[in-house]
Design a protein around this nucleic acid. Structure first.
Lengths: 204, 204
DNA sequence: TCATGATTTGACCATCTGGTCAAACTCACG
DNA sequence: CGTGAGTTTGACCAGATGGTCAAATCATGA
């Protein structure tokens, strides 16, 4: 059995292959829409073989989500009180947008989970995520008190960054259907920079 | 059989009940995650009875989507060249936000479909939706040419309105988990009005 | 009222799905 | 090379799922 000793070479390879395949399938069909057979096929394993590495479909999903949640929140964690507040926030926007471009599957994995009520990560949202957002919102509020950025509702400001950047990954089909040939990520960075500059530049 | 003659009273009632139940189930679980039994139960019908009114699960889904697409795009259609451009756009934002508040199931239905690659409405997106957006983007571009609103990429402007408003319906769980007690729709209208005023107010 | 079409249902079916298991195979290392 | 742990698989299972059908029930207007 795959116990909790140091993983063998084969274990590492197969676990990684399974998680990658699961990311493809879960992000494309949601939890209930994904099938173990499909994940196994995509990972190049038989179904029983896959279930030798993870005890259940649920376990794969959980492993994926919890393994990715940290990565997902890293850009926000990196928002700190160094230098110019506006540049800090613009940096966060840029990093988030870049993640949408480079990790669209991860974005859609979370989008699927959230839009369906987040039954499996609700706790992480109201614990870890809330704590992190509370902290960063407080930081932004301090910047506003000091007049270094314009005053807006800090939580809604954070929501806006999430929604504006993840939109390009989560609703990629729609964006591309509307834009036609034009690459979404050509115009997005400029648009978002303009938006947040105008929103947050301190006004007299 | 339910043919194409004028629908009876019972037909109207049951079809409506089915579509309402289907909206609940599809918006909560996505297409593959929804089951016919679940929809039938929620509509207060037996499964064979439900399948007497719609030939298949797919047919229910299609009927729902195409019936709702028009409603969904109405606010954008209402954006026209009357009065002040900025107020026109703010009105659009307000209507969209109101829809997120009042019709969250509809929003999540589309969100589910889009995030999973929109296999069933891809055509409507690249035909009707694209045409409508092209038209309204052109209108906005005219306003920008006339200096009546500040210049930004008109397509990304429209995407931003979609993402910022629908976020509150689609990712409701996350928003509420982070906000705690505070009602999301308390702060959202002000935040969005401020955002679009600052973004679009013509600058010297 | 009663005949006829509309509506409803229990029983059923084929397929899919998550998961199990014992047997077979492979690999690393003494 | 042999051996025991690690790995893989074909066959299988129970329950869920989309869908069918003939028979029963209901509603309505002539």
């Amino acid at each position: 059995m795959a116990n909790d000793r140091a993983p063998t070479r084969i274990q590492r390879k197969n676990r990684a292959a399974i998680l990658d395949a699961a990311l493809n399938v879960f992000s494309a069909h949601g939890f209930r829409g994904a099938t173990v057979d499909q994940i196994a096929a995509e990972a190049g394993l038989s179904k029983p073989n896959l279930l030798y590495y993870f005890p259940s479909k649920e376990a794969i999903h959980t492993a994926l989500l919890s393994g990715l949640l940290d990565t997902w929140l890293d850009p926000l964690r990196a928002l700190e009180d160094n230098g110019d507040p506006l540049e800090e926030i613009l940096g966060y926007v840029r990093r988030k947008l870049q993640m949408s471009q480079e990790l669209p599957r991860e974005s859609r994995l979370f989008a699927n989970e959230l839009v369906q009520g987040a039954p499996r990560i609700h706790e992480a949202l109201s614990q870890d995520l809330k704590a992190l957002v509370d902290e960063k919102a407080a930081l932004m509020e301090r910047w506003m008190d000091q007049g270094r950025i314009a005053r807006v509702h800090p939580y809604h400001l954070i929501f806006s960054i999430w929604s504006l950047t993840q939109h390009y990954a989560d609703f990629d089909v729609q964006v591309r259907a509307v834009l036609g040939e034009e690459d979404p990520f050509a115009g997005a960075p400029d648009f978002l920079e303009t938006l947040y500059r105008r929103l947050l530049t301190p006004r007299p």
